[in-house]
Design a protein around this nucleic acid. Structure first.
Length: 401
DNA sequence: ATGTAC
């Protein structure tokens, strides 16, 4: 785990509403429903031979990236954003941004029930208005790749991930809208916690008992921001589909494998001390990892378990795991969400000074497009732990396989 | 993570 303020990144906290349990914005994180989505094509890597640079340029032109970056021209700024916040990816598919089959392949069907757009401040809505379908900054990305190694042939076939298959991995969240929701509620929660006699060693542990109006308002706003993030990833996936169709033809159709939320709080049933309970499960930098047979999984994934998407850094592979009974028994059905930093951003920039990172990556067969050179330096491969080590640990711990 | 805050 890395240090976060308050709750750690890579943390899971479950609270029982009938026993004084709380919800905490800091247990979800600033980037509400930050998450990862994996798509697969019918192509193998050889189909991209010589076409990768042009494809990357087109994707970069169609999908804005970088701090504050939204749509300068035609975007979704004129849509009824409150309908978007209530409907999530369901809304997106209704207005033609995606296929109906996509929805079963998104956590919560792409729509968290109970979203309350009225609990989202006008400021948050304005910040999010022109950022639908944008990557953001930091470690957010769109990655083209291909299946390099298969560890379970039956599972890989079930997910449509045959060796060589060209894939698209998208990592992003709720942009300025979710950030503003978190900012808006932290001071409120601080007062509520104090009123209820909850002593906080860190202001980012601010929380409110689940039976308070403040908790319900936060949950309503958080769910709205989560739906915004599902739409954001849905719209980016649509843009990628358009670019693939335009450049590679009909055979390049992209099917959604799965979309996970790794910064979120949800009500779920878990067994604690031999008793089945409905708990408010916070996952901050943690991926849900439900086992085979869990009712939240769509039919096609019932026999496999929930896909757990673990991105590696630019110089390494990304991994697809499956949720397990072990995770359900020990971690409220949760697994890791990525590699985690080894070097701070400052240390990474220092390590990158004077080097030609684009050339180094090109030597590894990796093409990069970034909103700034600083981003590439901060996301330096050696700034991250080796995701293969993380996968090995969670596999041996039995919380993902 | 984020129109970092001052």
């Amino acid at each position: 785990m890395e240090n976060g303020f308050g709750f750690p990144i890579g943390g899971v906290a479950a609270f029982d509403p009938r026993r004084g349990g709380v919800v905490s914005p800091g247990g979800v994180g600033y980037d509400i429903n930050c998450g990862v989505r994996l798509l697969r094509s019918g192509l193998t890597a050889d189909a991209l031979e010589g076409r990768l640079p042009g494809l990357m340029d087109r994707l970069a032109a169609r999908i804005p990236a970088g701090l504050g970056r939204g749509y300068a021209g035609v975007g979704l700024r004129n849509v009824d954003i409150r309908r978007l916040l209530r409907g999530g990816a369901e809304w997106a598919v209704e207005v033609g941004l995606g296929e109906p089959e996509d929805l079963a392949r998104i956590e919560d069907g792409g729509r968290l029930a109970g979203a309350d757009p009225e609990a989202v401040s006008d400021r948050a809505i304005e910040r999010g208005r022109d950022q639908v379908g944008t990557v953001g900054s930091g470690n957010h990305f769109i990655e083209l790749g291909c299946v390099d190694a298969v560890y379970d042939a039956v599972a890989a076939e079930g997910l449509g991930l045959a060796p060589g298959t060209v894939t698209v991995l998208i990592h992003s969240g709720s942009r300025g809208l979710g950030h503003q929701v978190c900012d808006d509620f932290l001071p409120t929660m601080d007062r509520i916690a104090e009123y209820h006699g909850i002593r906080l060693p860190d202001p980012q542990l601010a929380c409110a008992p689940l039976d308070t109006a403040a908790a319900q308002d936060y949950l309503g706003a958080m769910r709205a921001a989560a739906n915004y993030a599902y739409v954001n990833r849905q719209v980016m996936a649509q843009r990628v589909r358009e670019v693939f169709a335009e450049r590679l033809g009909a055979s390049a159709a992209l099917a959604l494998v799965y979309d996970v939320a790794h910064n979120i709080a949800k009500f779920e049933r878990h067994r604690v001390d031999g008793e089945e309970r409905e708990l408010c499960v916070h996952r901050k930098g943690a991926t849900r990892a439900f086992p085979p047979g869990h009712p939240a999984l769509p039919g096609a994934l019932q026999g496999l378990g929930q896909p757990v998407l673990l991105p590696g850094d630019m110089g390494r592979c990304s991994y697809v795991l499956l949720g397990t009974e072990g995770a359900f028994a020990e971690t409220f059905g949760s697994c890791a969400h990525g590699a985690g930093r080894r070097l701070s951003r400052r240390q990474a920039k220092r390590a990158a000074a004077g080097r030609d990172l684009d050339a180094e990556l090109a030597g590894q067969g990796v093409e990069v497009r970034a909103s700034s050179r600083a981003t590439v330096a901060e996301e330096l491969s050696e700034a991250y732990k080796d995701i293969a080590d993380v996968v090995d640990v969670v596999d041996r711990a039995g919380i993902g396989r």
